[in-house]
Design a protein around this nucleic acid. Structure first.
Lengths: 144, 144
DNA sequence: AGGTATTGTAACTATACTTGTTACAGTTAT
DNA sequence: ATAACTGTAACAAGTATAGTTACAATACCT
């Protein structure tokens, strides 16, 4: 499969929007920077809008801008907006209830899953969009 | 897609093997507990064998047992054995190099990816197979 | 009002991964 | 020898992502 890169694209998109400040940015311009199709961008923007991270305007001179300041947008929010939030999946078929292990593995795995997902969320909680923007700009300064 | 549940199945399998101690367990018996096809089990066992977590014997009265004690098998090892170890993917297409954000986003995302993957690995490093076994057995004791 | 630009979304294709399944060669105990 | 396993190839079905085209709905601008 094409590995799920929506989170990466979402961060890219939000970084562009953050730089644009209060101005609307068109999906076409974003698509150019991300190097993909505008519809792919608009799909992701839809998910971000649903999470109240961005706001779009239709019509001529429309486009999208951030719904909050970059300091108030956390990468956990982005992650939750565009992914299922689960690092690994539980089996689709239930284990055998005839087996002592099968009977209890599901709840153990479920707790483990929650612990792992929580640790990802906590780590992503350490980063704001503002900080990503700083990193981008400082890398650019280094290259200059 | 069918979500990737190989890690969950691998933990289930290893728990069964841990309970069996030094005795060989057949893929058929494992498949019964996991409620799937023996070939699916053998595929995962192959990955676990490659990581030196289990050892199999072919032939009549063959099967598989742990290659180390449950105290020496960590869930990070299992995770690394059966998955790519990446919580999110980087985009397959390179970003536009004409754009200041596009030029630098990849290295920022790559560092972020490493940080997240590291935090997952650290959390999984807190659990040994022995501890999973304890959890399974204590849940069983509660149910009894 | 009318023309134009832009979003939102449906529909379709190509690609690729996971799971389940059958089949069978190779290997080992009895 | 025979029977019982593993290892693995090959294939089908299901499903997710990414890319693309197309178009209705919406809003600006003259």
């Amino acid at each position: 499969m094409a590995a799920n890169s929506q989170f990466a694209m979402a961060v890219h998109i939000l970084t562009l929007l953050a730089r644009k400040g209060d101005q609307n940015l068109k999906s076409d311009a974003i698509a150019h920077s991300v190097n993909t199709n505008p519809v792919v961008i608009r799909r992701i923007l839809g998910q971000l809008a649903h999470a109240d991270l961005v706001a779009s305007q239709t019509g001529a001179s429309g486009g999208t801008k951030l719904a909050r300041s970059p300091e108030e947008i956390c990468l956990v929010d982005v992650y939750k907006a565009v992914s299922c939030g689960e690092v690994f999946a539980l089996p689709s078929r239930p284990a055998s209830q005839d087996c002592p292990v099968g009977r209890n593995i599901e709840s153990v795995l479920c707790n483990l899953q929650k612990a792992i997902d929580r640790s990802v969320a906590e780590k992503l909680g350490e980063f704001t969009l503002a900080r990503v923007l700083e990193m981008i700009d400082s890398e650019d300064a280094l290259a200059a």
